[in-house]
Computed example of a mutant assay.
Amino acid sequence: MITPPTPGVPQESKVPVEDLDYRNAPGTRIHLRARQRSADATVWGRLALQLPGFLTSLLVVVGVGMLLEAWLGPPAWLPATLWLGSGTLAFHRPSERFLARHVLGLQHPLPAELATLAPVWREVTARAGVDGARYELWIEESDDLNALAAAGHIVAVTRRALEHLPTGQLAAVLAHELGHHTRGHTWSGLLAWWYALPGRLTWRGLAAGTVKLVRFTSGFSYPAAGILVVLLGWLAFATLTATYGLPLLLLTLPYLTAAVGRRAELRADAHAAGLGFGPMLAQMLQGLPAGKETGAADGTGRLARLLASHPDHRTRLHHLQQYL
């Protein structure tokens, strides 16, 4: 049983058990935290880094609204208003289920799978003082030992992780994903991606269109294609000069965003370790072949490591040492 909590103070078990005995069975009294979610520094860092992409997307959506108003008649502010409000769907349960099924390719666990997964999840959330019923458990058909947290309430593990990880290590993985939710990493990541999407798609379309235009022109005349390339280069130079080279800073955003993502992973590791799952998480990391974890940078070049969304195993194990 969990030690009776002091009023107003959430209790977290620090006993690093290797195998859970599901002490927090249904009906057991569990003290829940008053604040179920928070936002750490990585959340604000990620949102700040996505501000240029958000402003670019806003300009794109406003431009589309103006075109629609000229052609079809609806007010120009309507598309922008709907787009700005669409971010709330990240916490809308039906929208989350659509995202889980049709975008992430997840499946609801079968009764036998849920019988294995639910008690472990109950133990993890009880230790954290979190209402586990707020979240939905999903299964990913994959041969990787992995898990993910997304949107406002999605927690998923791969089938291989469910079937092959010992109970303690499975709990450590779930505690890590719970840390992403309670610290705000999931909703901020989804909103940053969503609100930068129109600008990103427009940029890709312009880049692809420019390449096709140059190829099309070169099919008729190489001198004409050369002139077009020179004109595009002059336009780019003029833009950089007029903006004091600020667009060049956008080239650093992928590296800065990846650095913030790696820090978020370490914070989620710390969350799991703080609940007593540090040794089991370290055991799981030690058992993973280098580079087999999604987003990890093991065995890659320096540039790829800078763009990796996850720290390498050695770095994660180093930060877990204080909890072992």
Score class of each variant (00 low, 15 high):
88 T>G: 14
284 M>H: 02
224 A>G: 06
153 H>D: 05
152 G>V: 06
298 D>V: 14
219 G>F: 11
138 W>A: 01
310 H>K: 06
237 F>P: 05
290 A>R: 15
304 A>F: 08
57 S>Y: 05
165 L>K: 06
189 G>A: 14
319 H>L: 12
121 W>R: 04
85 G>N: 14
179 G>Q: 03
198 P>A: 12
229 V>G: 02
75 P>R: 03
313 H>Q: 15
238 A>W: 09
56 T>I: 15
205 G>H: 08
136 E>W: 03
224 A>N: 10
20 L>D: 05
21 D>W: 08
197 L>P: 07
224 A>F: 11
106 L>Q: 04
320 L>I: 01
250 L>Q: 09
24 N>C: 13
238 A>C: 11
211 V>K: 00
90 A>F: 03
19 D>C: 14
8 G>Y: 00
305 R>L: 09
135 Y>F: 15
126 A>Q: 00
113 E>R: 03
105 G>E: 03
96 E>L: 07
46 R>F: 01
39 A>P: 01
191 L>Y: 04
101 R>P: 05
231 L>D: 04
225 A>S: 07
265 E>G: 05
97 R>W: 13
116 T>Q: 10
314 R>P: 00
94 P>Y: 12
295 G>L: 04
312 D>K: 04
230 V>W: 10
275 L>E: 00
33 R>P: 00
10 P>W: 02
200 R>H: 12
320 L>M: 06
261 G>C: 10
78 L>N: 12
